[in-house]
Amino acid sequence: MLIINSPVEEIIEINRHIYLLKVFSPQLTSIIKPGQFLNIRVTERVYPLLRRPFSVCDVEGNHLYLMFNILGEGTNILAHKPIGSDLDILGPLGNGFNLDGDYETAVIVAGGLGAAPFPYLTRKLKGMKNILSFIGGRTKDDVITYNLKNVKEASDDGSLGFRGNVVQLLNQNLELLKAKKIKMFACGPTVMLRALKEFCLKNDFECEASTECAMACGFGICQGCPIESTTESDRYLLVCKDGPVFNIKDVVI
């Protein structure tokens, strides 16, 4: 874990309201893994007070990318960071995805901004595994396919690709998935992960899911981000330290 100031190089709007922020940070790019996250202090003032967690979106040489939308004051400040200014980053945090395993095809499943960690995962898996990406969102503007491979899209309103949610789209492709040796990597809203868990349990698919919870510190001291375990009933796991990536079977979603 480091606390480091990294200069902002570029801020790009890749979808409507979806931004990509590029920083130069060789110290972080050399150690960070897909699925890990960074806790960013957007201002030195007392409002917003706490850091904001973002999963690493992509790494390209010494450059690191974060993906976000403007949700409140913190992300608004972030979207307007002057180019060349320093970004106060704490990280890398959390465990990240486990890319190993006896599988041939990585199946990426994401809803909305849940797509954020997968460009980096896709990059790391290149040449090692086949990749299939199932990406959903409410409307075509929320379906984020930036730097992903072999994408099948779903939108709730039918404005792009399959009309319906991403788990329904998976279900439609069940025979295809069953014919392959797969491992799923997922991130998205709780309702999506809940439906996905049911789908995976029913069809006996292995799945690692990146979870989310409000947190203050991001490294275990505030105890603010509990998640219920399916195996241990006497204590909670922490999203920041024990996760944010869990085997979907191991946590109550």
Partner: peptide, 10 residues
């Protein structure tokens, strides 16, 4: 065990 989430808000 402590309280269920959400435990924190800014």
């Amino acid at each position: 065990k402590g309280n269920p989430p959400q435990r924190i808000v800014e």
